[in-house]
Amino acid sequence: MEEFVRYLVSLLVEEPDKIEIRPRTAGQTKVYQVFVAQRDLGKVIGRRGRTAGALRLVVEAASRKFDERATVDIIS
């Protein structure tokens, strides 16, 4: 799952080697914290949060496929 999140984020950024994914657990939910280079932050969030929202939906759908509950949190 972590690699999946990393791949999706890599589609969006200029500096893929600066991506850091930190898995955290919050109750039943796995939260993948996403860290990217400062200049890429806007790209990952998108206008009015559109990109972040798309990322979250796809990760949540994928996690259901793996019978777990996961989401992403973009850390600024």
Binding site: L11, L12, E14, R50, A54, L55, L57, V58, A61
Partner: peptide, 23 residues
């Protein structure tokens, strides 16, 4: 993969589109 009212498919499409156009 389609999701409610096509929302998940829209999200997938958006990410694929951004990735394919290299941002």
């Amino acid at each position: 993969l389609i999701g409610r009212h096509g929302d998940t498919l829209d999200a997938l499409q958006f990410l694929v589109g951004v990735g394919a156009n290299r941002g």
